[in-house]
């Protein structure tokens, strides 16, 4: 691979990225650089392309224009390279998407054993390590449907961490949770941020964003409208659309 260059430059760079569903423009000229260790929170009204953007980063969606480089690899149709990139990029979904027919432990071991060729014993100790980090090591033998939503989401975070990624993507991780479950999941994410994990997080939890984010990204209609440190973004947003969005989301 000629473009392997993992040590230098940003962990993620998106340049002029565009995507269409038929005539509908889902992403338009998206430019985003994320440095190693940076925590980015993406917000914006629903349908603004936030999810589509982060799903392009591990190629759950294909972009049609521009280039995306992740940890030195340029994303293309090359299957092997995509699998390689996914090793470096963990993802947490709104709906958890745990595998219901496997125990929590098996959920966590699957990726390392299959993609990274780790031995079962090693994968198991890795899994237990990350289950402890998300504070549910005692649930290892259970099946996902036996757990609460908050516990399932923490398992999902641990499953992503087991791949020992360089970049974590969160796609509205607390939107499907009951209110009393949210703080536990956000707590785990904050611990992760403190430990120096690079994160891109789509969320509506603005208090969390204020505490954790190095940078706020505001998107609307498939475009990045504003990119600013949280202090500036929340006190004095530049664009009218961001002002409107913040007034709506912070008023209640």
């Amino acid at each position: 691979m000629s473009d392997d260059n993992e040590t230098q430059g940003p962990i993620l760079s998106m340049e002029g990225v565009g995507k269409w569903y038929g005539n509908f423009c889902a992403l338009h000229d998206v430019n985003l650089m994320v440095e190693l260790g940076e925590k980015v929170v993406v917000c914006g009204p629903s349908g603004s392309g936030k999810s589509t953007m982060i799903r392009c980063i591990n190629r759950l969606e294909e972009h049609q224009a521009g280039t995306i480089r992740v940890a030195g690899h340029t994303l293309s149709a090359n299957t092997k390279r995509i699998e390689r990139v996914r090793r470096d990029v963990g993802m947490v979904f709104q709906q958890f998407n745990l595998f219901p027919h496997m125990t929590v432990l098996q959920n966590l071991m699957l990726g390392p054993v299959r993609n990274r060729g780790v031995s079962r014993a090693e994968a198991k100790s890795l899994a237990m390590h990350y289950l402890e980090r998300v504070h549910i090591a005692d649930q290892a033998a259970k099946y996902p449907p036996q757990l609460s939503g908050g516990q399932q989401q923490r398992v999902a975070i641990a499953r992503a961490l087991c791949m020992q990624p360089k970049l974590m993507l969160f796609d509205e991780p607390t939107s499907a949770l009951d209110p009393e479950m949210i703080s536990g999941v956000l707590g785990v994410m904050e611990e992760l941020a403190l430990a120096g994990m690079t994160m891109i997080c789509v969320t509506h939890e603005m208090a969390f964003a204020r505490r954790v984010a190095d940078r706020m990204i505001f998107m609307d209609r498939g475009e990045i409208i504003e990119s600013a440190p949280p202090a500036k973004f929340f006190s004095a947003p530049e664009s009218e659309r961001a002002q409107l969005f913040l007034s709506q989301i912070l008023s209640h």
Binding site: V89, N97, L110, R116, R159
Partner: peptide, 30 residues
């Protein structure tokens, strides 16, 4: 089998064959 299962399996870097064998078929068989 819900679409999310495919996506989660792809997100942890499983190959097409492994996704079918480890994630999709066991759930489909039931």
């Amino acid at each position: 089998v819900p679409k999310g299962q495919w996506e989660a399996a792809r997100a942890i870097g499983l190959s097409r064959f492994n996704i079918q064998r480890d994630v999709i078929l066991p759930q489909a068989v039931r």
